[in-house]
Design a protein around this nucleic acid. Structure first.
Lengths: 200, 200, 200, 200
DNA sequence: GATGAATGAGAGTTCATTCAT
DNA sequence: CATGAATGAACTCTCATTCAT
């Protein structure tokens, strides 16, 4: 009589551990044994749930993304004003708290892994699409309310997302010139310039 | 009678080969033997020039950056108008021709490698600083000429650079939603909005 | 209310499955999990009936032999003429029908396994002894009836059995030079030469 | 300046070691590390010469066969009388001296491995063909000289070879009923019966 | 300067076996 | 009786690194 929850729980433990290890050591240096130890289990068990290291990493990337979405789901309901909604949304991507930093690390590893892996590119495509859709939708709401300049929302979303990716990477790299605070400031500035009537 | 240039030439061959292999296979999958074969030499010789794989990669990253700068040196002299200069500069980073694509690949691998390597972070810091300085300088020239809006040039440079990094990554990932052409369009739009008197 | 036969039935299922898997994949590649799946049960259950993989294989070898004997028991009663009896007996060992082929496969795996296992050698000794006894007995019957040449029956039996083993192996190996038909022809020829008055 | 002989010598050492280990432990239990230790080298070196365990085993089987042929090459020149030539040839296959026993062991492992491997079946086909050709040729010489009965030489060769295979296997299995001496006796008897004018 | 044979530490993966349920 | 999740020992294979030539 296997309890149905046991397998799901174990899976989560392992995926969470995998993300932690990727974040700390990087994909390249990740060993199955590390993930196992972190998850409090054996390497055999990791292989019981995931056939190969590649399969484990793919699942971990997906899990990392699903968690990211979950963390932001409520956020979008909290602010009626599109300006505040956009600000909060962008803000949630600043690599400040450890959980967000970890998610960014995993995401960065995915990128580079995906450069040579068609399947992961597809995953990136889906995630990025979801992200762009959310962002563009907020921009559109703001424009409908006459709050944002009348530019193509998709172009604006792409520009913002690209910028966030690029800046976050520099923050993660510990750049002295692009700290968390600088990134926040740059984002503020750019968001302001979207607003109708802004001088900049 | 070994000419002194022999060693320098060999070094270049190896570094070039290393960048090619990184670009094609990724850092993780790169083997010294691959680099040797690509460079038309033996793994023993690669080790003769570079003590360790890490040393080789570090040198390759630096070489990749130096070449990038070289390729753009003339560019900045060609355009008297800061608007055209900025446009040409940004344009030169679009991952279009094979050489630029390869350089971006190498750069992306460096980023992720640097996430867990202090020395590479320092390299990133220098390169990124150089890039930001060039970009900010053009912006400043434009402002002095009354052509660009009066925002903090460093902030503008950071925003642009971040955006270019993020968008280029998506193009490299073969995104159907962020193709080379889309990236070009987004960049055009953003550059336009910098110009004084632009409606957007 | 488990019927006492349940265990016996399960045992048979597992042994039969083990023989099938050995025949298809070979001893080396046989996994307990394969046998379990083939028997429609779990690996845990296989271990419930057989402590170790070795024990399972030993039992499977014995089961395979017992079945072989069963299949030939009636055969020997059917022919009053020793010549026909011998012919039918030899014929029954030709690797023609799937069941016989499977039995040969299992037997071949036993041989090689037994090369490094004293216990399996003992099993081979018993089985081979039984086989030789039956064969020699038929030969003796034929000689008593004045139908076969007057050679040492044990030597004749050994020669025949050796030949059958060796030829069957080649047939099993899919030899183009030693097909089932060729083997049948060679056996016919040799059996003929045993008969008194044969020209060959 | 690599000496050309180094690689060939090393290869031989490894193949010889592989045959020894196969003979002692069997294919199933053979570990690369065992072969390496036996060859006085490291497992890495074994893999330097043979990509995979499978490749190593295939090469070992071929090497074993080539050596077997070499050992018998002179034998066939030594006896002008086909009866003595056939006797000496058959005799050379009796698993008496350690070298022949080892060769038989390797051969037996090949058989069973080949049951599930098309490539090895092809190797068996070639070797067996060579063997049958030699044997049939001697028989034909004997018939031409009026020394052997007038049976189809190929059938005779097949019968003899099958018998030798089957009997050798039993001797290798340490059968108390089929010792080396018994096998020799059976072979003598059968060879005698081929001779014209033999009473049996 | 250059080579490539040789090494051996290290990692992924397999699978018989165990045991709580 | 039966299950299958979990284990971990064992093995193949990889590859940076070394060094004799």
């Amino acid at each position: 009589m296997p309890r149905p929850s046991v397998e799901a729980e174990r899976r989560e433990q392992i995926l969470s551990a995998a993300c932690e290890v990727v974040s700390e050591l990087g994909f390249k240096s990740l060993r199955i044994a590390d993930v196992a130890r972190r998850a409090g289990t054996s390497s055999g068990t990791v292989h019981y749930y995931f056939d190969t290291k590649t399969a484990l990493m793919r699942a971990a990337f997906e899990w990392n993304f699903a968690r990211s979405l979950d963390r932001r789901r409520d956020l979008l309901q909290e602010h009626a004003d599109p300006r505040q909604r956009l600000r909060a949304f962008v803000d949630s991507y600043l690599p400040g708290d450890p959980e967000t930093v970890r998610a960014w690390h995993v995401w960065a590893e995915l990128w580079v892994e995906a450069l040579h892996d068609r399947d992961l590119q597809e995953l990136n495509e889906q995630v990025y699409g979801e992200w762009r859709r959310l962002m563009a939708s907020i921009v559109r709401d703001g424009q409908d309310a006459g709050l944002f300049r009348d530019e193509d929302p998709v172009v604006v979303a792409n520009a913002l997302i690209g910028m966030i990716d690029g800046l976050a990477l520099q923050v993660l790299l510990g750049s002295r010139s692009m700290t968390l605070e600088r990134m926040r400031a740059v984002c503020e500035q750019v968001l302001s310039s979207l607003t109708v009537g802004s001088s900049a």
